[in-house]
């Protein structure tokens, strides 16, 4: 419904997918703001968190041992912003400009968002596997 209302505002000279994501993203932010159910860590403190460089061999092992299903499960646990960034980049293959436009950040920060999203994903993968090991016991 909202998409139909917004369709009149679409500028045909720009990317449709980027516009679509932007509409979807704005809708999500509106909902989150209204609910105030959770702390918006994606927007506020994400850029403040220091990130530790991963141990290359450990990272390799982590990636090699994961199935697509496990990754999808971990993706579903990410914050909206991180998940959207990863989906836009690695599924929709959107450019950095389009992602910046959709997320409402400056272009140079898209890389930072993606890197942080990857770190979150790795953490989720590790937590999932720890849960699986715990569950198996």
């Amino acid at each position: 419904m909202k998409l139909r209302d917004k369709l009149a505002q679409y500028d045909p000279s720009r990317s449709f997918s980027a516009w679509l994501y932007k509409v979807a993203a704005n809708h999500c932010w509106d909902m989150l703001r209204r609910r105030k159910a959770r702390h918006d860590k994606d927007m506020d403190d994400v850029d403040e968190l220091p990130l530790e460089a991963p141990e290359p061999n450990q990272l390799e092992r982590l990636i090699e041992e994961r199935t697509s299903e496990e990754v999808r499960k971990a993706l579903s646990k990410l914050g909206v912003r991180a998940r959207m960034a990863l989906v836009m980049r690695y599924y929709s293959e959107m450019s950095y400009d389009e992602i910046a436009d959709s997320l409402g950040v400056r272009r140079p920060f898209v890389g930072v968002v993606l890197l942080r999203a990857r770190h979150e994903l790795r953490q989720a993968l590790l937590e999932n596997s720890a849960l699986a090991v715990g569950g198996a016991r």
């Binding site: 991963p54 290359p56 990272l59 990754v71 690695y90």
Partner: peptide, 24 residues
């Protein structure tokens, strides 16, 4: 060797992400 391994891992991670989402 260390940066090479990390670079490879990052590239594999990209491909893993694409693959996982495409297979959905």
């Amino acid at each position: 060797a260390r940066c090479l391994t990390l670079l490879r891992a990052l590239d594999r991670e990209s491909r893993l992400l694409t693959r996982s989402m495409l297979e959905q």
